[in-house]
């Protein structure tokens, strides 16, 4: 008989970190909407470190200097309904409302999306465009990693074996920053993205002075499109849309799979980015 899976539901973060350090091979389980899919066909974990509703890591709180801190345990329902996220960091609110359907939004967490860091993780381009930092903790201490340095490849991250994700820090955005987010899937609700993206565009006196453009499902990981960000600087919005379209050509090498061909994704991504600047999204 195989030994039974161990199970721990820590009372607080300190206890969770101690278990994590002592049992690095245990499964770190939050809402389970990634980990529990087809569970009966999966290898039984040696142990489960249950983070669901762990006190202290689920709240959405105001951070230093007008930023926002979203606890790793916050669910998509909670993030999608938060007035502050909707007002000032809208791409994340819009992503939250289009992740799965009600059942998935009730269980799926931000920390889980960041932990999996799949190329189709819908919150991830939003985190990139919003310049988010991921805060992780271990018994050794805490550190922050910009999302751009977090995802290191196809579903691989900078998380160490003794660390847990604690929060995402969203800095305040400069005045005049326009935000956009768009997901293209097979249908409006509960579909895996074919292409999705987020944009933070600073426009001063009608001219784009700074832009962060991030796309998902077009590479092995969510990425910023530096070629577009450089091409649009100093241009009026309409001109920026055309420059963005031109800069997109050859800037990405989308995946080719059962959901869509690479050339379809190429075209959709190009239109998406151009429309961020023309204001059509």
């Amino acid at each position: 008989m195989t030994p039974e899976t161990a199970y721990t539901r820590p009372r607080d973060l300190a206890e969770a970190l101690a278990v994590r350090a002592a049992q690095p091979s245990w499964m770190v389980l939050a809402g389970g909407t990634d980990l529990m899919v087809s569970a009966i066909h999966k290898r039984v974990p040696a142990g489960i470190l249950d983070l669901w509703r762990l006190p202290g890591v689920g709240a959405i709180t105001e951070g230093a200097g007008g930023g926002l801190v979203i606890g790793a345990g916050a669910t998509w329902l909670e993030i999608g309904r938060d007035a502050r996220v909707a007002k000032a960091w809208s791409p994340l609110a819009l992503a939250a409302r289009e992740i799965g359907a009600l059942q998935i939004q009730a269980r799926g967490t931000l920390g889980g999306n960041i932990g999996t860091s799949s190329p189709v993780g819908d919150s991830l381009p939003a985190l990139l465009a919003l310049d988010a930092e991921i805060e992780v903790a271990s018994v050794r201490g805490r550190r922050r990693v910009p999302y751009a340095a977090w995802c290191t490849g196809y579903r691989t991250t900078a998380l160490a074996a003794d660390e847990l994700i604690v929060a995402a820090h969203l800095p305040p955005l400069a005045a005049g920053t326009h935000l956009a987010w768009r997901k293209v899937g097979t249908r409006r609700a509960q579909s895996i993205s074919k292409v999705m993206g987020a944009a933070a565009m600073r426009v001063e006196c009608g001219v784009v002075t700074d832009a962060r453009i991030a796309l998902g499902a077009v590479a092995d990981r969510p990425i910023r499109i530096a070629a577009v960000e450089q091409a649009v600087r100093g241009l009026a919005r309409a001109a920026a849309a055309e420059a963005a379209r031109a800069a997109m050509r050859g800037a990405i090498r989308p995946i080719d799979d059962v959901r869509s061909s690479a050339s379809y994704r190429d075209l959709v991504a190009e239109n998406l980015v151009a429309r961020f600047f023309s204001g059509m999204i």
Partner: peptide, 8 residues
């Protein structure tokens, strides 16, 4: 219920 672990 198919993706919720019993322990939880």
């Amino acid at each position: 219920a198919c993706i919720v672990a019993a322990g939880q």
